[in-house]
C-alpha cells in the first residue's frame, strides 16, 4: 500500500512536471520605445521570434505605455504563470527588483542593468567596445579628417556609446575632429527621424564624412541624410546595413536578440542561471556588421585594422574606457 502510494505520488509529481513543461510560457516586457523601434527593443523581439519559430513555443509580450505600468505588467505576468520574464531596458530595474522579491520562484531577466537577486539574470553589454570598432572604421573611411555622432538623449548610456566611438576614432588618428549632437530631451528624441536627419546634415555641412548614430528610431533619419548627401552613416543595435545599401558603412551590433534567445532557451532546457553577465567582444555580445550591402565600403586595410583591434581588446591589450566606470570620457 505504501509503495502504491509512493508510486502514485511520483506519478502525480511527474505529471505536474510535464504540465509545467507544456505550460512553459516566457514573457517580455518592452521598454517605452515599443517592440518595433527598428533597433533595441526590436532586437529583443527578433530573438524571441526566432525562439518561437524554432521550438514552436508561444510567448507573451507587453509594451508599456507609461512608467507606472512596468511593475503592474510584471506582476500581471508573474501571477499568470509567465516564466521566465524578460525585462528590456535599464528603466525596468526598480520594477524587477520589487516584483522579483514578491515572486521568488519566477525567473526574471533584465537587459542593460544589474539587479542582484537570486532569481534574476542580469545581462549588460559592453557597447563601448563595439563603438570603438566602428569608430576605427569611421576614422579610416573619412577622408576629411572629421566624423560625427548623433545620440538620442543626453543620458549616461548614450555617452557610453559616444565615448567608445571617440576612442576608436582617436585610436586611428588622435587629431581627428568628432562632432557630437544629441537629439532632444523628451521621449520623442528616440523617434524623431526628421530632427536626426537635420543634425546629421549639419554635421555633413561642417565637413564630416561619416556619422554614427545611437538614437533608436531617430537614427533612420541620420542614415537617410547620409544617403542623400552621398556620405556614410553607421547603424546601431540591429544590422541596419540594408536600409541604404552602399551608404551605411557598417552597424554596431548589440546582440540583444541573442541574449533574449539564450535566456528563453536556457530556461526551457533547465540550464538557466541567475547572476550577472557582461557581453562584450569576447562573448560576441557586441560587434560590427559586414554583409553584401557594405562589402565594397570596407577595404582590406580597414578589415585588418578592426581585426587587430578586436584581438587586442579581447586579449586585454587595449582597454576601451567605459564611461559608466567614472562618468568621464578621457578621449
Amino acid at each position: 500500500m505504501k509503495k502504491l502510494l509512493s508510486i502514485a505520488a511520483v506519478a502525480i509529481t511527474m505529471s505536474a512536471a510535464v504540465s509545467i513543461a507544456a505550460d512553459f510560457k516566457p514573457g517580455i516586457i518592452y521598454d517605452l520605445g515599443g517592440k518595433f523601434d527598428k533597433s533595441f527593443n526590436e532586437g529583443v523581439y527578433n530573438g524571441a521570434e526566432k525562439f518561437k519559430k524554432e521550438f514552436g513555443i508561444e510567448y507573451r509580450g507587453f509594451e508599456i505605455a507609461n512608467d507606472s505600468q512596468r511593475e503592474q505588467a510584471m506582476r500581471n505576468f508573474a501571477r499568470r504563470g509567465i516564466d521566465p520574464i524578460l525585462a528590456v531596458g535599464f528603466s525596468q530595474a526598480a520594477a524587477v527588483e520589487k516584483v522579483a522579491k514578491e515572486f521568488p520562484k519566477v525567473r526574471f531577466a533584465i537587459i542593460d542593468m544589474v539587479v542582484n537577486l537570486p532569481n534574476v539574470e542580469s545581462i549588460v553589454f559592453k557597447e563601448h567596445e563595439g563603438s570603438f570598432l566602428v569608430g576605427i572604421l569611421a576614422a579610416m573611411s573619412a577622408k576629411s579628417g572629421k566624423v560625427g555622432f548623433v545620440g538620442g538623449m543626453d543620458i549616461p548610456l548614450i555617452r557610453k556609446f559616444a565615448c567608445g566611438y571617440v576612442g576608436g576614432v582617436k585610436h586611428v588618428n588622435a587629431k581627428m575632429d568628432v562632432f557630437q549632437n544629441m537629439t532632444g530631451s523628451t521621449g520623442a528624441a528616440w523617434s524623431d527621424p526628421v530632427k536626426g536627419g537635420e543634425l546629421a546634415k549639419s554635421q555633413f555641412d561642417r565637413g564630416a564624412d561619416v556619422v554614427y548614430h545611437a538614437a533608436g528610431g531617430t537614427g533612420i533619419g541620420v542614415l537617410q541624410a547620409a544617403a542623400d548627401a552621398g556620405k556614410l552613416g553607421i547603424g546601431v543595435d540591429s544590422n541596419q546595413n540594408h536600409l541604404h545599401p552602399g551608404s551605411v558603412l557598417t552597424s554596431m551590433l548589440k546582440r540583444v536578440d541573442v541574449a533574449a534567445y539564450n535566456t528563453f532557451k536556457a530556461a526551457k532546457d533547465g540550464t538557466w542561471k541567475a547572476g550577472f553577465s557582461a557581453l562584450g567582444l569576447k562573448e560576441d555580445g557586441v560587434g560590427w556588421a559586414l554583409d553584401d550591402n557594405n562589402a565594397k565600403l570596407v577595404s582590406a586595410d580597414m578589415k585588418a585594422a578592426v581585426a587587430k583591434a578586436t584581438q587586442e581588446i579581447v586579449s586585454g591589450k587595449i582597454v576601451v574606457h567605459d564611461y559608466m566606470a567614472d562618468s568621464k570620457c578621457p578621449y
Binding site: 535599464f90 528603466s91 530595474a93 542593460d112 542593468m113 538623449m153 543626453d154 543620458i155 549616461p156 548610456l157 532632444g184 530631451s185 523628451t186 559608466m324 566606470a325 562618468s327
Partner: peptide, 24 residues
C-alpha cells in the same frame, strides 16, 4: 514644456543621478 524637459534631463544626468548608475 521643452525648457522644463531639458532642464530636468540636465539635472538628472549631471546632478541628481546616483554615481555609476545607468538610470537617470
Amino acid at each position: 514644456n521643452f525648457i522644463a524637459s531639458s532642464v530636468m534631463v540636465y539635472l538628472l544626468v549631471n546632478v541628481l543621478i546616483q554615481p555609476g548608475s545607468m538610470q537617470p
